[in-house]
Write a protein that binds this DNA or RNA. Structure first.
Lengths: 342, 342
DNA sequence: TTGTAAGCGTTATCAA
DNA sequence: TTGATAACGCTTACAA
């Protein structure tokens, strides 16, 4: 009960495997009539092409490695969805790995992808990733790497990132215009490029408005709703702040909960802007103002960039593409002056 | 600049490829000293094993196909995460595909997976899937298939499902105990097993309480927040219902929005229970009562089941494993009588 | 313990 | 337009 191969088809028709191969892979150098017979027989014998053999022989693989910190994060799963949408029609399958935010795991994943001889890698770093030799190794082995979101210039190849700086800037500028002044910033590790840039946007907006930067209002490690909740609760109680710019929507939800429990009205006494436009942002009350990152667009761009590198086998381009973000002003920050949009 | 192969290593050491192969794959039939030399040389030449060649030769593959309707759904991405957690340590990689809820796409995906000679498939049907020959074909080709969540008994092999009936039953029973009587049911297509079972649980709870079933309170196609919102709005206005059991949390959010806009208090005048325990369920106001499905557990069980079939190469088992669900009673349904839990 | 040799299923090159 | 043949890199009887 072995599987049907092109040899079986060839034998059944009294021709050679080469012809069958040509016919099945759409070569023009084959008689239309024989092609018909071959296709028919293939159907009849339930022939399934063997990509493993094909890959070995051709020396290339139609599989792309995708490496993300966690697949079950809204943002990443959407990026992956978009990548698939581009790459599948182009004839590629995705080998997906998660680093679980661990560097060791990330190294292992790269290794697995290389062993599997993927045609390319699209990836976003773990938060722990501070050295890049494992990724550079892939590039050295002629496996093109496209980085997205969390990226490093140390790694050759295209990068696709969100306008994080601009997002932070717009969010905080908007808060200032809405007459909030003591604006706290909740964020993740500032060693990660995305958080660092949002933070810089925050700083720039303050500076532009002539508001002195106060280090004591910036809180790293407040990116989850739990951690955010605890700190926000204390801050609100002590009445030190009148607004929060959170580098993530979950973080913002922590603030929202804390405010609710303290009986502080949003946006009345407290302004709040998140980041990411998670699906719930528009569903909670008050509806959460946030910076929308276009995961779909980002995945699309990353996949397209990789496709270009693969197909042109061109010299490595080091350009960084930027995906625009959008400030969505909703209820949680809409006090007086500013006009509501969206 | 070709890649290093075991032949290169063999040549460099004046031994044969077979020995190198044995050493590198951990066979005991090789001298400890030669093994050392081989490993050292492999390191030195930056040898990367070629899984493609290995798979072809061995006739089996360490890749598992995972096919889900959409990777960017909270539930599915968590299941995939759990599957990976089991299969990666076991030495398998995941080839992930999405059907995008389309049957044609699902058929294509199965085809790709078979072409890639995956060792097994873990899948959940698209909503359109009403015939199963493409899946049965995989089983016939000796590729074990494990179905989860959306499953069919037509396909041989293990199935892992949530306690959907029980979830629906518990949710509605709880609403009834909280003194709600006119309970509407918002759900997806009842041709999909998960929705059908939740619906049956709903019916059973009503029956048990002696409340007559009213067909006009059941709404298929109200599983998104948008569709749900529209219908809920009308229902609330017409004062025909005093509670909603939604087969999904997004659906419940639509109800919540509608109620808010109508100035109807939840849980005071309207009870609401969702399904899935999406991350936002605990963050919205009022906090949403819902039925928690254990995606993690489900993924774990599915992966373990597949592993067993693969490793034992055993006869196909047709058992259906059930993952318990939990009713999380939160604010949106906590009126008088019932005691709050969780 | 190591070597020999064949073969996994496909494709590319060359010749007919 | 088709056929013959070798090769992709690895594993595995079998022999030494």
């Amino acid at each position: 009960m072995k599987r049907t191969t092109i040899i079986d088809i060839a034998n059944a028709l009294g021709i050679t495997p080469s012809t069958v191969s040509r016919a099945l892979s759409g070569s023009p150098r084959v008689n239309e009539e024989t092609r018909k017979r071959i296709e028919q027989k293939a159907e009849e014998l339930h022939y399934q092409p063997n990509m493993v053999a094909s890959s070995l022989r051709k020396g290339r693989n139609d599989t792309i490695g995708v490496l993300v910190p966690r697949i079950n994060r809204h943002f990443f799963s959407h990026v992956v969805g978009a990548i698939e949408e581009v790459l599948n029609p182009a004839g590629f399958s995705l080998l997906i790995c998660q680093s679980h935010e661990r560097l060791v795991k990330e190294v292992q994943c790269i290794d697995v992808l290389l062993k599997n001889r993927v045609a390319g890698i699209i990836m976003s770093h773990s938060v722990e990733t501070i050295r890049f030799d494992h990724i550079i190794k892939a590039v050295n082995e002629k496996v093109p790497v496209v980085q997205f979101d969390r990226v490093s210039k140390m790694v050759p190849g295209p990068r696709v990132v969100n306008e994080n700086f601009n997002g932070g800037y717009m969010a905080v500028k908007h808060l200032i215009r809405s007459n909030y002044r003591r604006i706290a910033h909740f964020t993740g590790s500032l060693r990660v490029n995305v958080y660092d840039e949002r933070f810089k946007g925050y700083c720039y907006a303050l500076e532009e408005a002539g508001i002195p930067f106060d280090e004591s209002l910036v809180f790293e490690g407040t990116i989850t709703s739990e951690t955010s909740y605890a700190i926000a609760f204390a801050l609100i109680k002590s009445q030190q702040v009148d607004a929060f710019f959170c580098a993530g929507d979950y973080s913002a939800m922590g603030v929202l909960q804390a405010a609710r429990e303290c009986g502080i009205s949003i946006p009345g006494r407290l302004g709040l802007v998140g980041f990411a436009n998670e699906p719930f942002a528009d569903l909670v009350s008050p509806r959460l103002s946030t910076v929308e990152q276009n995961a779909y667009d980002l995945g699309h761009k990353a996949a397209t960039a990789l496709l270009q590198v693969i197909q042109q086998d061109s010299s490595i381009v080091n350009d960084e593409e930027t995906v625009p973000v959008r400030l969505l002003v909703r209820e949680s920050s809409s006090r007086n002056s500013e006009v509501k949009m969206e």
